[in-house]
Write a protein that binds this DNA or RNA. Structure first.
Lengths: 394, 394
DNA sequence: GCTACTTACTAATACGTATTAACAGCCTCA
DNA sequence: TGAGGCTGTTAATACGTATTAGTAAGTAGC
């Protein structure tokens, strides 16, 4: 019944022969936009019919080579996406990208870094990404040279997260770590905290720098001078032991800690352990807030005060940005910043020694000054809904 | 220092001009395997030098076009992959497919079903999947006509899960539900159970049929006649209430239940509720075992006795199978069956009124009959850890 | 009955690569 | 010295598509 199985894929030429027209006509019918309109209806039908019968589907490679659109969007992550201890970190991004990609009528091409640390985008002198019309990039350990090369090559890319490049401008959609951190500091200041320890990541990446900026801004806004000794790099979150906390609360008069979460679950594990052994209690002994989302692939044992990135929405926005970059042949780079949402949690409270014990605490005569409460008009929504009003921007 | 940014990518022709040779020579030097050996050393050096100076990187599209392969593998799921209540169900498959795809030097193309229920692979007479070299398919609510059409078209596909088609042979990698269920029955029989209730899914899919086959085989092996009234379809897992269990243990003398898990978390929720209200206690009042993995995206409240599919490994195997299908132009279909692993858990025990068999009460995991233990040599990792030893290869 | 214009199509080409066949120059051997 | 072989390079071609410049037939205008 069925004809002997074809070995070769049907091409436009095959269709052309069957429909008795030329290959060009087939191309015009199948993918001709404006010019395709001037094809007579019977011809068009004949072509479509032949295409259906042959099970035609366009060859991406040829399309791409010719300069046409492949209708593929890439997603490249600089780290392997799938290690289990980071799955919940990357998953929302994947989700958002996938959703928006499909909504826009594109298919998603998944490039995964092997994590070798070597050049992987340009492997063997080949730009793997090129099959896609454009690409969303993601990840912490960025290889800047490759990134710069992509930009230089004028290949449309959007980064999720703020990444600055020397001499090249990169499109990105980033979370507003500066404001979020600043707001967090303001909140702590409102609660009477004056000595706030900031534990930052060791690597000097943009997100870390932004948080530090926010920290300084927040202090400045609250009229608190910056004590540089309270800005510390924390190599391993596991070091955040009870002894560690006690050292700072005791010797240095620290009453609150801001800590940058790691992408694995080490930080929350360490915090859980620290508060579990009973020596330090949050927020009774010390307030603590996380400057971002813990990975939370393990059920949260408690509701840490923190702020949260609208990851799904960021990913969606990135795709929209990317699409925008495609249309006018390589539009200008765009940078979008989206606000984080503050998750109140239960790990911060008033600074100890507010009313009593004047001798112990560092700042004896501090003024709670509720009139100074910063930005009372834009109190972040209590729940984690990531500013739904900005969804349709574009 | 760096030359003004190029707009166009350097091609082999550019290199050829600069090195004073032909494009063919460049190709031979840069990517010629066997034939590349016959290039004189000075020429080779000149070419390499020119290539380096121009920052050459090959064009994937052109390469693919020439080679006839796109080096893309597709992954299509008949349900939307990303609804959160099924994420943990699909995630391991995605993980395995992605891993193996990348290891094989392919990139992964993600097709997502919108879940419209309509024909989605062949949209507008065009086969979306065809832009990949081959495709791994997945999902419960299969649209058989489309599947059959793919096979008829001779497009290389591999299904994860056993799917039988009328008049067409499909490659798949499936879990051995028959043996796993049979083994579970054997284990219960060993514990003295004689009346085992089997709660199957309503839809008559292959996995369900296989479990039923295993159930019958297990009973037969244990010399227990099949009581057809003990095979029941369970429409909604939420119906598995304490009353329900009591009815069967009371009236029908049932001492153990085998139940097919749903893909959402309804079953485990129902079980948790049933055992929480204290009227029924597993395994004291009744043994119960799950014929597969609960989705477990919510932390497991208890360790149900069950068997578990090696999902990551199945996915990897599927990709390997698919690659095999590509090489000799469309090899013959292959079916692979992989064993499930038994998770002892704590929800089965000796039948009531039974002088507990050799092993004490609830230690079924030790498999007293090691000769019957399924696949003792390749015991899959007990839980979600995806065989960490295989990570670093390549 | 000539041009001018529209309609519906096609020939030709370019995209960047890998490969095959061909070729020129040189050496070897009879 | 001429046939044959080896070496190093290149011309030519194919892969499948999108697009530009045409062309042939028909219609309209005068």
């Amino acid at each position: 019944m069925t004809p002997p199985p074809r070995q070769r894929r049907a091409t436009q030429l095959d269709i052309a022969r069957r429909a008795g027209v030329s290959q060009a006509t087939v191309s015009l019918v199948l993918s001709g936009g404006a010019a395709g309109a001037q094809i007579a209806e019977p011809t068009r039908q004949a072509v479509l019919e032949a295409a259906a019968e042959l099970g035609y589907s366009a060859n991406v490679a040829a399309k791409s080579l010719r300069g046409g659109r492949t209708h593929l969007l890439g997603l490249y992550t600089f780290e392997p996406v799938f290690p289990t201890d980071q799955r919940d970190f990357y998953y929302p991004f994947l989700l958002g990208v996938e959703e928006e990609t499909s909504r826009q009528g594109y298919d998603l091409l998944l490039f995964t870094s092997i994590g070798s640390g070597a050049r992987e985008i340009y492997t063997g002198g080949v730009n793997r990404l090129k099959l896609a019309d454009g690409c969303v990039l993601l990840g912490r350990n960025v290889r800047r040279e490759e990134l710069a090369e992509l930009v230089r090559e004028d290949f449309p890319i959007v980064f999720i997260g703020r990444r600055e490049l020397d001499g090249a401008e990169l499109s990105y959609v980033a979370a507003d770590y500066v404001t979020a951190t600043s707001d967090m500091v303001a909140e702590l200041a409102r609660l009477g905290h004056r000595r706030i320890l900031y534990l930052r990541a060791v690597e000097d990446t943009e997100p870390t720098r932004d948080r530090e900026t926010g920290y300084r801004q927040g202090l400045a806004a609250a009229g608190i001078p910056v004590d540089e000794s309270l800005i510390r790099a924390l190599a391993d979150p596991a070091d955040l032991t009870a002894e560690y906390v006690e050292h700072w609360t005791g010797t240095a008069g620290v009453t609150a800690i801001l800590v940058e979460p790691s992408e694995d679950n080490r930080l929350t594990t360490a915090l859980a352990a620290t508060s579990a052994d009973g020596r330090v209690s949050f927020p009774a002994d010390c307030s603590i807030a996380l400057l971002g989302d813990p990975p939370s692939w393990t059920p949260e044992l408690r509701d840490w005060t923190r702020f949260s990135l609208p990851r799904v929405e960021m990913a969606r926005t990135a795709v929209q940005l990317l699409i925008g970059l495609l249309d006018p042949p390589h539009g200008t780079p765009q940078q979008v910043t989206v606000p984080c949402s503050l998750v109140p949690g239960d790990s911060i409270g008033p600074a100890p020694g507010q009313a009593a014990a004047p001798g112990q605490a560092a700042a004896p005569g501090q003024a709670p000054s509720p009139d100074q409460a910063p930005s009372p008009d834009r109190t972040p929504s209590p729940d984690r809904t990531p500013s739904p009003d900005r969804t349709g921007s574009r």
